[in-house]
Design a protein around this nucleic acid. Structure first.
Lengths: 208, 208
DNA sequence: CCATAAGTTGACCAAACGGTCAACTAATTG
DNA sequence: CAATTAGTTGACCGTTTGGTCAACTTATGG
């Protein structure tokens, strides 16, 4: 009964687009409404508050944007290390496409919002934490699989997971800061180094 | 002539303390004034705008907080790789001390502000970019020195610098997000892996 | 000792903020 | 074809925002 509308979806999309670009605090309810072509009255018909919208938007982002890319790259049908390679390639491609289209390189939405911490609504922040955790598990499982298969030369697997994930998020964050996909180039090769995998062109190593 | 005052310094300090914690956008002029014990009228006696204060504060932060730590750790009297180790140890110690004091782990001020990009005043953002660049040069020079001394097993030094820096900033950012110094643990050992330096306990490596 | 420059104050402003609401419109379905 | 229900609208509210200002206070140096 009653009429139907996609205003809710448009609000979610607008919230993510703007938050990705500007961060949580800099995005106003008015701006989201303008971008979605929805009047403020309608906004509060769909969401209790700006924080409630943001929570739903981030969860939606994860389900519709992040997860599909992760699921595809980290499919267990791919060899463990190949999963990382595919994921890096996919993200690099996304950023390159954005740049070609004259848009900005924005890195990882969840990470950017999570960086806000105290200036972000606690529930929204918790949502980003949850999303980030789920993403990290893809890395963990791939690296554990690689370790089980004897593909990597690492004794402390947990430490390696942490390092690979830090390297990845650091590179993504720097890509945002520099507005360029450049920090993502060579990420896979560097990850192999962290994992103690010999490079295509082997290099000697000495004790410091 | 006229009277003297340290209000300017108090404003710089307050701006950095609050911005470090809350980010650029979430910090208000009123909050800075309250924290500094300065009335708003006085604020605009010293600074043209919030952006002007932030610019000056970040530059002050670099000169008084960041640089001294960097200069001490990256002193050329230390062996190249030891410089990185000392710097990581110093930062880790700072965060541990903060935690012990019941305060929050906040990572790198400049990086957090730079992540804001579009929501930050352009001149303020440029200032953080400049500071971040200067910090990165410390890494670069240490790693180049290590390469020249034949201490590392890496062919593409520039790529190694990028990776080490990404790993470092990623770990710092994650420490902020998790409110814990934990991601900084073992950073040096992981950096050695990136630089192709054999670990204390050597491990085999195979081709993937 | 007093002129003057430097510093301080609180009241004030327009704009922007998140949020509310009662009235209105239009599809759906019994 | 109602009656119901979901969706829409724009005016409105209190608060907070960055910023202004004229009047006031106080150390200093000539």
């Amino acid at each position: 009964m009653g009429r139907v509308s996609d205003a809710r979806e448009r609000l979610l999309e607008a919230a993510n687009t703007l938050t990705w670009k500007l961060g949580y605090n800099a995005v106003t309810v008015d701006a989201i409404c303008d971008h979605a072509g929805v009047k403020k009255g309608s906004f509060y018909h769909y969401f209790e508050s700006k924080a409630a919208l943001s929570k739903a938007a981030i969860e939606d982002w994860w389900q519709t944007k992040s997860r599909p890319v992760l699921d595809k790259a980290f499919s267990v049908t791919n060899p463990p290390l190949e999963r990382l390679k595919l994921y890096y390639a996919a993200l690099h491609e996304i950023q390159v496409q954005r740049q070609k289209a004259g848009e900005q390189v924005l890195g990882c939405l969840g990470f950017s919002v999570a960086m806000g911490r105290d200036s972000v609504d606690p529930e929204v922040w918790q949502t980003t934490q949850h999303v980030l955790q789920r993403k990290r598990r893809y890395f963990e499982s791939a690296i554990r699989d690689a370790a089980d298969a004897g593909l990597i030369g690492v004794t402390d697997v947990e430490a390696a997971v942490q390092a690979v994930y830090s390297l990845f998020e650091g590179a993504m964050a720097r890509a945002r800061i520099q507005n360029s996909p450049e920090p993502l180039v060579g990420l896979y090769e560097q990850t192999l180094r962290l994992l103690g995998v010999a490079q295509p062109v082997a290099s000697e190593s000495r004790v410091a």
